[in-house]
């Protein structure tokens, strides 16, 4: 037995002796690579990154290999996966809603007028009748012509009230008109929708008057239904090359009326509060 082991050892040593130069080369190369690994240079970072990528590629090939999991456990895992996916979607939705509602609560707390929060039950995207159906009606003291706002600016006005719900005409309705003014110069004009989503026209400013891109448009004191100084939008295009006396002014609305889900109905119609200086800042600070 011992003799045989000795024979194997001698044979092994002989093999080592014959191939010694290859073994030594391999050992030195391995030692060099080991030393290279100890560096923190960008070259090594690059190599490590590519090695990780190659590992990912190789692991993708592994997917093609036959799966040794039992059919029952695979089915079980798939069901669990679907369940987790559903739960994840619900949590994600709740998280986003949480962020949105927190902002709205903050806005409501510091807003000087009494407001009724309302959820959008339905949107009717017909350009001839652009309205929202809200989940607040007489039961929450909502009245005709109450202003509807978001934390960023004007959204529309109530045109129909029922016991549990009401209908809001959006500012992007074809029939919508409102008196408005430019914040910087106090020039008056009329707001109307011109057919593009989240965009409006500001009509009635004579061509030689001062209007600049970036001017903020607010509701005016002349308006019959709207409280003054509620921001509507910002001027992004001015065109004097149109026939007639007036400029062609276009603005982008502050409220995104395509994705609107929660609004505030202004239940307090005190014009004196809205006319105070700095009222519009309640909205404009949310845009920053």
């Amino acid at each position: 037995m011992l003799w045989q082991l000795k024979k194997y050892a001698v044979g092994f040593m002989e093999i080592l002796h014959i191939y010694r130069q290859y073994i030594i080369l391999l050992s030195l190369v391995v030692a060099s690579i080991f030393l290279l690994q100890t560096n923190a240079n960008p070259q090594l970072t690059y190599i490590r990154r590519h090695l990780l990528f190659m590992t990912a590629v190789v692991s993708r090939f592994q997917v093609w290999l036959p799966e040794y999991e039992s059919a029952a456990s695979v089915k079980n895992l798939k069901e669990r996966n679907i369940e987790l996916f559903k739960r994840n979607t619900v949590l994600e939705e709740a998280y986003l809603e949480n962020i949105r509602l927190r902002k709205l609560i903050q806005f409501r707390d510091r807003f000087p007028l009494r407001t009724v929060p309302a959820h959008v039950l339905n949107k009717i995207p017909n350009p001839r009748l652009s309205v929202l159906i809200l989940d607040a009606g007489y039961n929450k003291n909502v009245r005709m012509h109450d202003n509807v706002i978001t934390d960023r600016g004007l959204a529309g006005k109530i045109i129909e009230v029922h016991e549990n719900h009401s209908i809001c005409e959006l500012i992007t309705d074809e029939m919508f008109r409102a008196a408005a003014k430019i914040q910087r110069t106090r020039l008056d004009g009329i707001l109307r929708w011109e057919g593009r989503p989240n965009e409006m026209g500001f009509y009635g400013v004579i061509k030689n008057l001062d209007v600049r891109i970036g001017d903020v448009i607010l509701t005016s004191e002349y308006s019959e239904y709207f409280l003054p100084n509620i921001p509507v939008g910002v001027v992004y295009e001015i065109n004097n090359e149109v026939p007639g006396l007036f400029k062609d002014i276009r603005l982008k609305t502050f409220s995104d009326l395509n994705t609107i889900e929660e609004v505030f109905i202004v239940a307090d119609t005190s014009r004196s509060v809205a006319a105070r200086s700095g009222f519009e800042e309640q909205f404009l600070r949310n845009l920053k």
Binding site: L25, A31, S32
Partner: peptide
């Protein structure tokens, strides 16, 4: 200060 780089290339050159 890049350990192993010259060692590797010189080992292969010597071999």
């Amino acid at each position: 200060d890049f350990y192993g780089l010259y060692a590797l290339s010189k080992t292969l050159a010597g071999y």
